[in-house]
């Protein structure tokens, strides 16, 4: 069984982002870019499953500008067997990504797809659900535990839902999106980084895959959130509660 993993190149999670003065977006020039942390977790889970002998191959997929190849190399250095890069210079919305992904699934026939639950740039939290919907495959979002039964072709997934955990059982093939507590992603070792350089990354364009990239969304502006006011130090809990009640009127 093959496993496909979607990985997105985003502004590194430790970078303090700056909104562009002309309000067209967030500054990404000369900013450190990395693999989306939730995608790292998705890739780690796929690698674990392959290492447990339950999958034969892990394919990392990234979409976007040419630099996505760097992110794919990181994925290959972590242990993915090969990469697919769908090069697109225009912005892709989750629906576009899901449609491209569906085409790649038809070409590769994976038994399982892992995606991060969301990207830390646009925070959409949509792509996994949309891929599953387009493929008519079962889905388990926000996974915190995945157990695979190879014989029965079933994945049992624990999901983080509001106020608890839900367990679902999915027939394969299926789509799983990963939450923070699922695992701790590995670091790429130097020998593996060297090995990754010779691994194959196949290139496509959306046109070659016959996917029409149209958009039904338009970014009007990107602004900074309102500034938070400075705090005050209170001397007791009662004073705090009193201030909250009578000054801030929040409780």
């Amino acid at each position: 069984m093959k496993i496909m993993v979607a990985i997105k190149r985003v502004v590194d999670y430790a970078v303090k982002i700056r909104v562009k003065p002309d309000k067209t977006g967030v500054e990404t020039n000369n900013v450190k870019m990395s693999m989306n942390p939730f995608c790292e977790i998705a890739l780690e889970e796929a690698l674990k499953i392959r290492e447990a002998g339950l999958a034969s191959e892990v394919i990392a997929v990234s979409m976007g500008p040419p630099q996505c190849v760097d992110t794919l190399r990181t994925g290959l250095a972590m242990g993915a067997d090969r990469g697919i890069h769908v090069e697109a210079t225009t912005g892709l919305y989750p629906l576009n990504v899901a449609k491209i992904f569906k085409r790649l699934v038809e070409l590769e026939n994976p038994g399982l797809i892992f995606l991060g639950k969301q990207a830390i740039d646009d925070d959409c939290n949509q792509t996994g659900q949309m891929v599953a919907g387009l493929l008519r495959w079962p889905q388990a979002t926000f996974a915190s535990k995945v157990v695979l039964d190879k014989e029965k072709q079933v994945a049992t997934v624990e999901r983080e839902v509001d106020g608890g955990l839900e367990t679902l059982s999915l027939d394969l093939p299926a789509v799983i999106t990963t939450d923070l507590r699922l695992n701790q992603p590995r670091y790429a070792t130097l020998p593996n980084i060297m090995k990754a350089k010779s691994k194959v990354i196949k290139k496509y364009t959306p046109q070659e895959l016959n996917v029409d990239i149209r958009s039904d969304l338009e970014v009007v502006q990107v602004t900074e959130p309102p500034k938070r006011k400075a705090g005050v130090i209170v001397s007791s809990v009662d004073e705090l509660i009193e201030k909250l009640k009578n000054e801030a009127h929040v409780i």
Partner: peptide, 14 residues
Amino acid sequence: PIYAGNALCTVRYT
């Protein structure tokens, strides 16, 4: 909100 609430994005649905 985008970028974990560090920016706000106004979008138009067309």
